[in-house]
Design a protein around this nucleic acid. Structure first.
Lengths: 187, 187
DNA sequence: CGGGATCCATACCTTAAGGTATGGAACGGG
DNA sequence: CCCGTTCCATACCTTAAGGTATGGATCCCG
C-alpha cells in the first residue's frame, strides 16, 4: 500500500481542522469528504465506519500531541529548562482542536477515554516535573492540577486562543511557583 | 396563568439534569418529555420550538447561577470575607451542567453567547474583588483569569467534580495570592 | 350551563447523517 | 494482455430528531 498512508493522514488533518472551526458536530463524513474533494465511497473505503475513523483520529492526536511531546520534555534534565520547554509546548498545542475534543468528550465514551488518557499523562508528567524542581509531592500534585486547569481554561475561554495572554498567565503561574515558602513546600 | 410557571421550571430543572448526565446531545425534546412523563405536545405548547426553550433555559441558568450569585458577593464589603464566600459559591455551582453547557457552546452560537456573558461577568467581578483586596489592576486581571480557568479546569477534569480536591486547589491558589511580593503587586 | 382558553396526546411529515450495495476507472504483476 | 486489487462515484436505505396538524380533555368564567 504505497500511496495509501498519505490519504489517511489527509483525513486526520482535515478532521482536526474541522473540529477546530466547527466543533465536533461539524465533523461529519460529508464535511470531511467535501473538504478533501471526494465522496463517501472514499471514506468508507479507508475506514470501516465513523467509529473506526474516530478511534484512529484520536490515536493520531494522542500520539502526536501528548506521548511525543512528553517524551521530548523528559529528555531535558535541568528542571528550569524543562519548564521553559513545557511552557513553549503548551502554547504551541492545537488549542482549537483540543478544545473541541474536550467538548466532544462529553458526548462520546470513546472520546472521553482518549481525553482521560491524555489528561492523565500530562498530569503525571507535570507532577514529576514539579518534584524534580523541588516541590513536595502533595504540592507538586496541586501545582500540576492547577497548571493543567489553566491550560484548559485558557483553551476554552478564548476562541481562538491568544498566544500573548496565555504567556502572561503562565508567567504569573511560574512566578507563584517560584515563591519561597518553606512551610508550604514542606507538604 | 397560575398553574403554568411551575411547568416551565420543571422543564428547566429536567434540562439541567439531562445536561449534567448525558451532555448536550442528550438534551432532546423526547428525553425531556420522557423524564417529565408527558409527550411532545406539552413541550410545543409551552415553548414554541427547541431554540425558544434553549434560550429560556440559558436565561434561567444565567440569572440563577451567575447574576444572582455575583450580586450576593457584591453585598459583602470585607475583601477577605468576600473571597471566602466566592470560594463557597464556586464549590457549590452545578458543575455537571456547567461543564456540559461549556461543551455545548462549541456547537451552538446561542449557547456560546450565553456562556460568554457568564464568563465575562464572573471575570470582571473577580477582577474587581482582586483590586478591592489590594492587587494592582494587571495582576488582578491575571488572578481573575487564573481563578476562572482553574474552576473550568476542575469542572472538566473530574466527572463528577470532587468537592474535596476543588477546595484543596482553591486553597493553594489563595495561598499564592496572599504571598507578599511588592515588585509583582506594583504591576 | 355553555364556550373559550389552557394543556397535552396522537399521528404524521421533513431533514440530516450514518451506512450499504454496486459498478467503474486506473494501475501493477504474471 | 488480462485479471485482481485499489480507490472511489452513484444511488439507495435507515434512523433519529425537530417540527406540524389536529383533536380531545379539563377548567374557569360569565
Amino acid at each position: 500500500m504505497p500511496p495509501e498512508g498519505l490519504s489517511r493522514n489527509a483525513y486526520y488533518e482535515a478532521g482536526l481542522e474541522l473540529l477546530a472551526d466547527r466543533g465536533h458536530s461539524g465533523l461529519t463524513i460529508a464535511a470531511l469528504c467535501e473538504q478533501l474533494g471526494v465522496t463517501k465511497g472514499s471514506f468508507y473505503h479507508h475506514f470501516g465506519d465513523m467509529a473506526g475513523y474516530v478511534a484512529l483520529l484520536l490515536g493520531h492526536w494522542e500520539a502526536e500531541h501528548a506521548t511525543r511531546l512528553i517524551a521530548l520534555s523528559e529528555s531535558v534534565s535541568d528542571p528550569e529548562e524543562r519548564f521553559d520547554l513545557l511552557q513553549k509546548i503548551a502554547v504551541g498545542l492545537p488549542h482549537g482542536a483540543e478544545a473541541a475534543i474536550r467538548a466532544w468528550s462529553w458526548n462520546s465514551a470513546l472520546v472521553a477515554a482518549a481525553q482521560q488518557r491524555v489528561d492523565e499523562a500530562r498530569l503525571s508528567h507535570l507532577t514529576r516535573a514539579g518534584v524534580d524542581a523541588g516541590l513536595g509531592p502533595a504540592r507538586a500534585w496541586r501545582m500540576a492540577r492547577i497548571s493543567l486547569s489553566v491550560l484548559i481554561g485558557m483553551q476554552l475561554l478564548e476562541r481562538p486562543a491568544q498566544r500573548a495572554s496565555m504567556e502572561d498567565v503562565f508567567g504569573e503561574l511560574r512566578h507563584w511557583m517560584a515563591v519561597e515558602d518553606p512551610a508550604a513546600i514542606a507538604l
